[in-house]
């Protein structure tokens, strides 16, 4: 776990050191607050959360000299407070055989890879997992999931390219029910949330699988790329409105993306965040921890002061 934590922090703090760099030691006046607000927005935290943090600073610390450590502390506390309610691990309901999970998201967010990783984790935990290659649109998407099937030993239900995803999902629920599987993961084609017809197709997939099992799907996971900016707020809003998303998976947090969008989303929708992806390996898909994430986002102790000084120079160089 320690390895995971440091990885997450490394990934997140790479660019968020700037929080402190704005003012390692400085009087907290209007212009300082403005700079901090900029930095918060630039970390993809979203305008609402950013402005609330700024107001808190204004109320309690205005005119005082503040240190980077103080800023970090307050930020981490505030962010952890926003995130705590959404840090809910993904737990399939053992009453269901199978617990049906529909995995949705825009193109390239990492749905198929996420499904492969979840399948491996539950497979290793001794659960019987099946997968449905529901992306019948994109070239070689079926083959991509089949490779994961070979890696994990989980059977993959697949149709012909271009075949009806809803029919395939129905078939998947049927086969998995007959096999008394514990978990059924249904992949879907990536779709932009503003494409009405494609979103309607998702609703249809759900309608059709309910003809076999009225309670399905038991979870609808929306996979989000951490590099996505403010548009994620709109993505979640639309997906949630149309197909009742039950939880989020945030991928690619091991890059240089700050992932602050997670805070904005938690603030706006309070949807559970079940997993974060911090690397290529199956084990790098991890449960979401509010405190770890908050600390990672604002930077930890240790050598940070050194990095702050370095980073300050770097920021001055590029900000002009």
């Amino acid at each position: 776990m320690a390895g995971f934590f440091s990885r997450l922090r490394d990934g997140l703090s790479r660019s968020t050191q700037k929080f402190g760099a704005v003012f390692t030691h400085r009087r907290l006046d209007d212009s300082a607050l403005e700079d901090l607000e900029d930095e918060l927005i630039a970390a993809d935290l979203g305008p609402a959360v950013a402005s609330r943090v700024i107001e808190e600073f204004r109320a309690t610390r205005f005119g005082r000299d503040v240190t980077a450590a103080e800023i970090r502390e307050t930020l981490a506390t505030e962010i952890a407070r926003v995130l705590a309610p959404v840090a809910v691990p993904f737990e399939p309901d053992p009453k269901h055989h199978p617990h049906v999970v529909l995995v949705v998201g825009v193109n390239g967010s990492g749905k198929t890879t996420t499904i492969g990783k979840i399948a491996r984790q539950f497979g290793e935990a001794g659960k019987s997992v099946m997968m449905v290659a529901g992306d019948t649109f994109r070239a070689a998407a079926v083959e991509q999931l089949q490779v994961w099937g070979q890696r994990t030993g989980a059977p993959v239900i697949a149709g012909k390219p271009g075949s009806d995803a809803a029919g395939l999902a129905y078939e998947g629920v049927k086969q998995a029910t007959e096999a008394r599987a514990d978990l059924l993961l249904i992949d879907t084609a990536g779709r932009l949330h503003n494409k009405g017809a494609l979103m309607e197709e998702l609703a249809k997939i759900i309608r059709v699988m309910r003809k076999f099992d009225e309670s399905a799907p038991h979870s609808v996971l929306l996979v989000l790329d951490a590099t996505v900016g403010q548009n994620a707020v709109e993505q979640v809003r639309v997906f949630r409105e149309l197909i009742n998303v039950t939880g989020l998976v945030v991928t690619k947090l091991d890059g240089s993306a700050r992932g602050g969008i997670v805070v904005a989303l938690a603030d706006a929708y309070k949807l559970p965040v079940h997993y974060v992806g911090v690397g290529e390996q199956a084990g790098d898909l991890r449960p979401f921890s509010a405190q770890d994430f908050a600390r990672g986002l604002v930077g930890g102790e240790g050598d940070l002061t050194v990095r702050l000084v370095d980073d300050e120079a770097a920021t001055d160089g590029t900000a002009g």
Partner: peptide, 9 residues
């Protein structure tokens, strides 16, 4: 749709 990370990339 990329956010602020675009600059690093």
């Amino acid at each position: 749709m990329t956010g602020q990370d675009a600059v690093n990339t």
